[in-house]
Design a protein around this nucleic acid. Structure first.
Length: 525
RNA sequence: GCCCCCGUAGCUCAGUUGGAUAGAGCGUCGGACUUCUAAUCCGUAGGUCGCAGGUUCGAAUCCUGCCGGGGGCACCA
């Protein structure tokens, strides 16, 4: 059952299918139920008409003043318009990006940075407390390979097998060397090989991580917690956790290894947590990490992962269950991949071919706003193509400008109105906002809170972007056919003043919506 | 083989968790600036919603099967 804005304006301002839904239970025909409701609604304050239509829809038309009052409400609510409290009391640990510190963040990670931050804003808009978290995999063999790659380039050797290549390896190695010299450390390359490797591992990761943090910051994404996997091992948290899980029977022993019952959460097979040589598998860190997140107050752990990590869902939920938590306390959101496109053709990103696009490349090419908007306006279920040339163009193939322009335009209207002495301090006559573009605009403005609440509930930030495009369209149409300032020697009337409220209300909603996407709302363009 | 995502206008994608005549942008074609920002607006053309069944008052949406594209299936991390 729902009350919604009908697609067809002829069907009124609001329409509901309630009569069809309850007809069976009421033992009456849908149209009869609707007719009864219509007669009860008609004549109530604010309602102009209520009619039965089609198989039993109830079409409701609001009195002009009632619809227009919304403009005042929005302007007075300001940045708070659109907020809700459906998630009050919920503490969400939202983990995203978590790219390995062995290189810069690529397009894929950039998508999760934009989406994750937007989801965080959406959850917060509904009253949830959100911890933005980045899990820093600084423990495994890939870090050893990274260190070996740095050392190799300093020594002028060939990169190691499965090592990392690219200019950034040289740059980081240089930076590590410069820092070593400045600190008057012992020259790294004079050290024994094992010691030199450890030196580059430690310093190299620090430098790489600082770069990643800076890129994210410049992208407008700052995490509350940068969590080091290494710390779970160093503190003994992993060992302690594993010991308890063995003792409690949450893990079982087979073929000399200890297993997690991930099949109970839909996995193809159970997963090894403690290898038969007694060492911990990667997943052991994940388990201890989930416990740590809960201990830090999270009652919902959300993971935003790429499609290539789809297999993690079952094992992360199984990990929660093994720890005694509800599997619902772990939520894994899987997003599809990002493709690089040039001239209409897909380009396979390859380090060797030099076709890798990083977060910094993307920002440099198109700017933060265009980048974030392009990455958040699509459903995460859709694979997206990024065409740098297209995004850099200030054309309508680039809807971020369409929305931003609407905001800037509303700002210009307000400035002009001020010059004419039109201000919101004077009369507001909501019943004067009767132009068809005004009815449409007011209708859309009224939907914003519901759009935001649903976007948060379904973890679908793209709904906000799509809504903003629709709202911007309605605003441009209104701008084109009505005027806030008088023409010629026309006097200023209540209609002009009332339209300023509508203009400012629209600007507020555009700003609030863009804010949820982490995209700027410029005053001028 | 099994699991996940996708298939909607020439292209890129929405489609309010089952509603009324399936939408937007780009691209076509044609219009609108001597007055608040033309990064805009108005009009036009374009569809077996991958295919076939099923569920019901009603399906792009839910179920089953098939076809096509992408991703994943380690005692790696």
């Amino acid at each position: 059952m729902r009350v919604e804005r009908p697609k067809d304006r002829d069907h009124g301002d609001w329409a509901t299918n309630v009569a069809m839904q309850v007809a069976k239970a009421a033992g009456a025909k849908p149209r009869d139920v609707a007719g009864h409701l219509a007669s009860r609604l008609a004549g109530r304050p604010g309602i102009a008409s209520a009619e039965v239509a089609g198989p039993g829809f109830l079409n409701i038309r609001l009195a002009a003043g009632a619809a227009g009052e919304l403009a005042r409400f929005i302007v007075e609510a300001g940045p708070k318009y659109g907020l809700g409290d459906a998630m009050k009391g919920l503490t969400v640990n939202l983990e995203f990006v978590s790219a390995n510190p062995t290189g810069p963040i690529h397009l894929g990670g950039t998508r999760w940075a934009a989406v994750g931050d937007s989801l965080a804003r959406l959850l917060e808009s509904q009253g949830a407390e959100v911890i933005r978290e980045y899990y820093f995999n600084d423990h495994g063999v890939q870090i050893d390979r990274f260190a070996a790659s740095l050392l190799a380039v300093v020594l002028g050797e060939d990169p190691p097998e499965d090592g990392y290549v690219g200019q950034y390896i040289q740059d980081i190695a240089d930076e590590v060397m410069v820092e070593a010299m400045a600190a008057r450390d012992k020259d790294p390359i004079e050290r024994p090989r094992a010691e030199a490797l450890e030196f580059f591992r430690d310093r190299g990761v620090k430098v790489m991580f600082a770069q990643i943090k800076e890129s994210l910051h410049n992208f407008g994404v700052d995490f509350d917690v940068y969590f080091h996997e290494e710390s779970l091992h160093e503190s003994g948290a992993v060992d302690k956790c594993l010991g308890e899980l063995k003792a409690s029977g949450a893990l079982y022993e087979s073929e000399g290894a200890w297993w997690l019952r991930s099949t109970e959460q839909g996995d193809d097979k159970d997963r090894v947590v403690i290898k038969s040589d007694g060492t911990a598998a990667y997943i052991a860190g994940d388990i201890a990490y989930i416990r740590d997140k809960h201990h830090r107050g999270a009652n919902l752990c959300v993971y935003l992962l790429g499609a290539d990590h789809h297999g993690y869902i079952a094992r992360l939920k199984a990990a929660a269950v093994a720890l005694g938590y509800n599997p619902e306390s772990v939520e894994v959101i899987i997003g599809q991949m990002v493709n690089l496109v040039k001239g209409g053709e897909a380009v396979r990103m390859s380090k060797r071919a030099g076709t890798v696009v990083t977060m910094e490349d993307l920002v440099e090419a198109v700017g933060v706003d265009a980048a974030r908007y392009a990455l958040t306006r699509s459903s995460i279920d859709a694979t997206i193509d990024i065409d740098l040339d297209l995004l850099a163009s200030h054309s309508n193939a680039n809807p971020v400008y369409y929305v931003q322009y609407a905001h800037a335009r509303a700002g210009a209207v307000a400035r002009n109105a001020a010059e004419y002495g039109i201000s919101r301090d004077q009369a507001f006559a909501p019943e004067t906002l009767t132009h068809e573009t005004e009815t449409a605009l007011l209708g859309l403005l009224g939907e914003f809170p519901r759009i935001v609440a649903q976007a948060a509930q379904f973890r679908e930030q793209h709904r906000v972007a799509r809504y903003l495009e629709e709202l911007a369209g309605a605003f441009h149409g209104w701008y084109d056919r009505t005027r806030v300032t008088p023409q010629g020697d026309e006097p200023v009337t209540d209609l002009h003043r009332s339209r300023l409220w509508l203009n400012d209300a629209t600007r507020q909603v555009l700003a609030n919506g863009l804010g949820l996407l982490g995209v700027g709302a410029p005053e001028r363009m």
